[in-house]
Nucleic acid binder design. Structure first.
Lengths: 237, 237
DNA sequence: TAATTTATATGATTTATATCATATAATGCC
DNA sequence: GGCATTATATGATATAAATCATATAAATTA
């Protein structure tokens, strides 16, 4: 299909490479990378890898959005990270030589490349620049996780809900209208990220909608009063 | 002072080096490391570094225990990580070339070395083994943080409290009596780790004490019914 | 297109936990 | 060693948010 054309022409012409950890590679290295990767198209809702699985390589998102999710207690899901094109996925388990501790599921149709494990280790060993890019990525994920811990420990569900919407906006941006968050998540998925019940999530979104902070249309959420949403996300006493 | 003697004789004879990321260095590299570090003794409660500060190097704990803590909303503290001898501290900000996003405070008198920033970057660039050790450390911290997120999202305060005691035991071990957790934290500090109020923390510890899961003596906590504590840490319905 | 399933919505009730209040114990300090 | 401060303890109350229940809307599939 025509829309997949750039995806098929290799890493050198990959439209997201300069947005990824591989931006630091020179032309020869990119060509080398290209030889050691293979790509696949995933339908919405497909698993890219699953909890407890063994990593066979590094995933790099060409297009599409992905959630990293783990099964907590009582079977309840927890969304740990949200991933967009240009991001690498599955690097943690790969680098520490462990099994995956979460599953990766596509939130929409996606094109994803997998980079051979052995090649990846060679590449980061021979290219400190690439290694530092990966390290920076992990460092950022750690920072985001620790921010999330503080939020979960100290904020109300209401505050975290507002914060989550700002986070979604920061991660996926707006659509052309400049106010609709460019991702479709079910209420349950949002709840699984915020750490609340689906009902509370629905209730709070309705409330924000009534208070004209946001505008709901199906799964689409538009931010119509950013200022007040930011306020709501912070302490409000 | 005599008790500091091994600490003063350099990295080659450091009693915790084989327990640290530097275990992978050969003799020459260790001697090189030794030249580029300096050591200091800290009193209990001292700051090793503070939030928003710029990293000057990598800290390596020779002895003593440390908490990494961040100021959340309304000035409330959040303990993000607990650190023991042999651990490195401050590596995240250093590697990603950012300011510290948390403070490091000693929980008891401590001996801590600081390894020169420039040297450290040279060392990890020239020694992939060392780099991988540091990466593994960060990978583990990320995993622990994400486990904490799931716990905060899905467990009750009571469950998290029991979990925290098991975590303290796993981190710092027992004293000679084989049941007293080898760390002294105030109730407030425990609350700041668990993500609850000081009162709830006190109340739950009292309750565990009454229920003979633990035995309290001042700040010392002994686990006297591990089985039941493990049960309490999990879902109990 | 009707039938079934799943998602969203909202009300009613319960409950865990924060908050406020006060007491006692422990610790640090002049 | 007595005084001030801080930490621990515990009761009373308020409340946010979970849970249970039911209704409606949307999406899937037969």
């Amino acid at each position: 299909m025509k829309q997949n054309a750039p995806f098929e022409t290799g890493c050198m012409h990959c439209n997201v490479r300069l947005n990824s950890v591989f931006k630091v590679l020179d032309e020869d290295q990119v060509n080398d990378l290209c030889i050691h990767k293979s790509c696949a198209v995933y339908k919405k809702g497909q698993y890219v890898f699953t909890e407890n699985g063994l990593p066979a390589g590094l995933f790099c998102i060409n297009s599409g959005k992905i959630k990293l999710t783990t099964t907590g207690y009582d079977g309840k899901e927890q969304i740990l990270r949200l991933v967009k094109s240009g991001d690498i996925v599955g690097y943690r388990a790969l680098l520490s030589n462990e099994r995956y501790n979460c599953s990766a599921v596509t939130l929409e149709d996606a094109s994803i490349c997998i980079i051979d494990k052995k090649y990846f280790f060679d590449a980061i060993t021979s290219s400190p620049k690439l290694m530092f890019e990966v390290v920076k990525k992990m460092s950022n994920d750690l920072k985001v996780a620790e921010d999330h811990i503080v939020s979960l420990s100290q904020k109300s569900v209401r505050e975290r809900m507002a914060e989550a919407l700002l986070f979604l906006k920061a991660t996926y941006g707006f659509e052309e209208d400049n106010q609709t968050i460019n991702v479709s998540l079910s209420r349950e998925e949002i709840a699984d990220y915020v750490g609340t019940s689906t009902e509370s999530c629905i209730r709070l979104l309705s409330e924000f909608n009534n208070d004209k902070l946001i505008f709901l249309k199906g799964k689409k959420i538009s931010i119509i009063n950013l200022q007040k949403l930011i306020q709501t996300a912070n302490i409000e006493d």
